[in-house]
Amino acid sequence: MILTTPAKLALRVVALVYLAVLLAFPILTILWRTFAPGLDVFWASIRTPAAISALNLSLLIVAIVVPLNVVFGVVTALVLVRGRFPGRRLLSGVVDLPFAVSPIVVGVALIMLWGSQGWFGGLETLGIRVIFSVPGMVIATIFVTLPFVVREVEPVLREIGTEQEQAATTLGASGWQTFSRITLPAIRWGLTYGIVLTVARALGEFGAVIMVSSGFPGVSQTLTLLVHSRYIDDHNTYGAYAAATLLMMIAIVTLLLMTLLDRKRPAAHFAPTPARSHS
């Protein structure tokens, strides 16, 4: 499509205004509200016992969820791309389920499954508490973040094909050597992006997690839940802003770290597939 210069300018303005109003303004407002009273006020607000506990819990959930999603996400992507079996399309659809199901429904479903009246409720009599405890929050977070790694790795796997792996095999590499030396480096870019999305979503998940959390400050609140409770329950508007800023900072640090790690290696030499956005 060929556009005249005024038309190009108009399109640019529309896109920029749209981004500014919907993305930049709200974030800038929070940042301004957070840092306007001074850094020491912000520091104090994120050093309360409830905030430290929330930060720790959020990071713990990320630390459990990310490795699990990486392992099972890559395996699932391999099965979806390489496997030839009936039901492959169904499996592919199931992977997308978390995009389709409202997180709050996920929470309800988990309570019905793992709660004391649920199918696996028997665990509670053995002293293993899932719902209203950390395991439940982890399971809920896995549920909502499951598609990210799969969906980012899948197109990369499809694109690289199997020839490089076959070549490695003819050169004597075992299955594991082929995976770790050929497949993994080839999908690293997609995997990195999947991890970033997983971390962001795990930190920010609200609906599914609030259903299965007991919500006690300092015990079972994630940072996101803390933002909510400070704002709604405590009417501590400033505290909510400060916690929100902390959340954003963690997400940005994650993004920067992953980008830096990726730069260090020669991955830049082959063109990454374009990123696809998800809900």
Partner: peptide
């Protein structure tokens, strides 16, 4: 025997170069 144990060298039509290696 698997390909690893056959003592072969294989060259593919589309090179199958390991793109992330020098």
């Amino acid at each position: 025997l698997p390909p690893q144990k056959r003592g072969i060298g294989f060259v593919f039509q589309h090179y199958a170069a390991f793109k992330h290696m020098t």
